[in-house]
Amino acid sequence: METANPATIFARKKVAYACATLCCLLWGSSYPAIKNGYEIFEIATDDIPSKIVFAGYRFLFAGLLLLLFAMAQRKPIARFSPRQYGQLAFLGLTQTSVQYAFFYIGLAFTTGVKGSIMNATGTFFSVLLAHFIYQNDKLSYNKTIGCVLGFAGVMLVNINHSLMDVSFVWMGDGFVVLAAFILSAATLYGKRISQTVDPTVMTGWQLAFGGGVLVVGGYLTGGTLVVHSATAVAILGYLTLLSSIAFALWSVLLKYNRVSMIAPFNFVIPVAGTVLSAIFLGENILDIKYAIALVLVCSGIWWVNKRSA
């Protein structure tokens, strides 16, 4: 077997790093996009079923778009064993349906800035889960420090000016953290499936199936979604493209690279989410605790992926 030379390996890593950064920038932009979507579609804060319908259409369309793209590349999109169909359905149910139900509801009851930082806990959940799943990815001194710093940043976000006043809202902040945990577990499961199923096809099916479940569930519980303007179509279109591009790229990256190689770029998500929420939602990021929390979270992710001497 021919061994790639150092220049080729370096070039591949640069491409992987660029793709990982793009994915995280796109995911970071979803925080203000979703909250703007609630306003544009005139979805009330307590109208949870309509939020689920909104999320469902986003992922259903994203999944169908990816499957069409796979077909254009002449990739088989339906040649699976019964076991693989079951795996794809389970992945769609967990990674898309359940995870995003919690995420969309949670984001409605917290700010975009706070939500983007809270969601960064997913990186640390991935590290902890990988410790128990992969023999070559055990918890180390550096990873332990990183997890402690990251969770310290999340705790800081929930402390008000009075240190005894903790502003943790279970249906908001709690749901965002729970969504991050579910996504971490489902992503590791998806990495396993991608070894036998093309990543683009896998992502397309899991998004389409999971999105379909959300749409049906939202409508059955009384949700609606009315397109009031071209802006509504544009925001849904952006979220659809965001999901299809980011999830497909991330699945490919995870198939061909170790989780610990790609994970450092997750720091882009809370930073992008915080800055873009401030720009497009007018949320306050001047509070010193948000700045310190971002530093702690990003430092934690850096430590998790720092090579031991």
Results as ranks from 00 to 15, higher is better:
residue 117 I to K: 03
residue 65 L to D: 01
residue 117 I to Y: 04
residue 201 V to M: 08
residue 145 I to S: 02
residue 126 S to L: 15
residue 210 G to F: 05
residue 38 Y to E: 11
residue 21 T to N: 09
residue 64 L to A: 14
residue 190 G to T: 12
residue 199 P to D: 03
residue 297 V to S: 02
residue 70 A to R: 05
residue 201 V to D: 05
residue 123 T to Y: 08
residue 22 L to S: 13
residue 167 S to L: 08
residue 103 F to D: 01
residue 100 Y to R: 07
residue 44 A to N: 11
residue 76 P to V: 01
residue 105 I to W: 10
residue 184 S to T: 05
residue 43 I to A: 07
residue 91 L to M: 11
residue 272 A to W: 00
residue 191 K to S: 12
residue 50 S to N: 08
residue 250 W to D: 06
residue 66 L to I: 08
residue 134 Y to W: 12
residue 111 T to P: 09
residue 241 L to A: 13
residue 20 A to D: 08
residue 3 T to W: 06
residue 224 T to R: 11
residue 294 L to W: 01
residue 240 T to E: 03
residue 2 E to L: 13
residue 26 L to W: 08
residue 182 I to G: 04
residue 246 A to H: 05
residue 107 L to D: 04
residue 166 V to C: 11
residue 272 A to F: 01
residue 153 G to L: 05
residue 208 A to D: 02
residue 135 Q to K: 15
residue 90 F to S: 11
residue 68 L to Y: 10
residue 23 C to Y: 08
residue 53 V to W: 07
residue 301 I to L: 01
residue 153 G to P: 09
residue 157 V to A: 09
residue 7 A to G: 01
residue 114 K to S: 15
residue 269 I to V: 15
residue 21 T to V: 14
residue 124 F to G: 08
residue 212 G to I: 01
residue 37 G to A: 08
residue 209 F to K: 00
residue 221 T to I: 00
residue 46 D to M: 10
residue 288 I to H: 09
residue 96 T to H: 06
residue 306 K to D: 00
residue 246 A to D: 03
residue 224 T to H: 13
